[in-house]
Amino acid sequence: MSILINNETKLVVQGITGKEGAFHAQQMVAYGTQVVAGVTPGKGGQKDNNGIPIFNTVENAVSETDANASVIFVPPPFAADACLEAIDAGINLIVCITEGIPIMDMVPVKEALDNSHTRMIGPNCPGIITPGECKIGIMPDFIHKAHGNVGVISRSGTLTYEAVHQLTEQGIGQSTCIGIGGDPIIGTTFIDLLSLFKDDSQTDGVVMIGEIGGSAEEDAAQWIQNNNFDKSVVAFIAGQTAPPGRRMGHAGAIIAGGKGTASDKIESLRNAGITVCDSPADIGKTMANSLQSKLTT
């Protein structure tokens, strides 16, 4: 098993004829993802280089191909509208890769998500992968090890790859890896995914990669404590050396008014009994030890 996506997931690529969309559609097809449709308004009826049919609207794509997931490679000024269109078309899972969407545009998207059955990953994220089955996003797939027992949830991109690489080097495969995005408003939080991993019999452990800004890590720590989450959890929080008041690359990575520091997050997680690595180089090793000690107890 895995969470959210598997080899039966049918994907529509919104913005398939753009440079990014075209490149990554090709990569996802090569990985084995069922890319069934593309959407570019005005190019309906055409096909992309992989022979994928292009539609003018997500609604058309869904009714013609039964697509149930969507990935968005639409430029920032139009991306929020693309999210709303996918929600309106009844897509189950949206993965929004686009970085740089105005916050004012994201507020109504979040509201629409809350009032629908659609789940969204991102925006400003690398996407989601169930190794060996389905990749929706821009991550390098070869670093993953298929059919594993560890899930990864992260606010980062390349730091996620770093963690996955370390797990694979330890011989630990992954069930599903999700980059939830670096923006202040995101569709899916640590807690949402932890609760899915809780019910996933394949997953024995979860790596959580957080960073400064907001309180999502503290909330997750609380949730883990309150919900008897008995799987191994290993966390790393990036930004222990980040200065306050500065946005560290991601729009959501900022210590504001003394809130959202790495040390507060680490303390909350440790208080909840979660193993937090001081070094980003120790994530794989620490998870290996944690899984091992679970086996022997």
Binding site: S156, G157, T158, E211, A238, Q240, A253, S279
Partner: peptide, 27 residues
């Protein structure tokens, strides 16, 4: 000099952990 904001922060952190001080964040 790092690619990606999260990894850039992580790199700053590990420099500190090894007894140094990062001079910058650069993604």
């Amino acid at each position: 000099m790092v690619n990606g904001a999260g990894l850039a922060m992580g790199t700053m952190d590990i420099i500190k952990l090894y007894g140094g001080e990062p001079a910058n964040f650069l993604d």
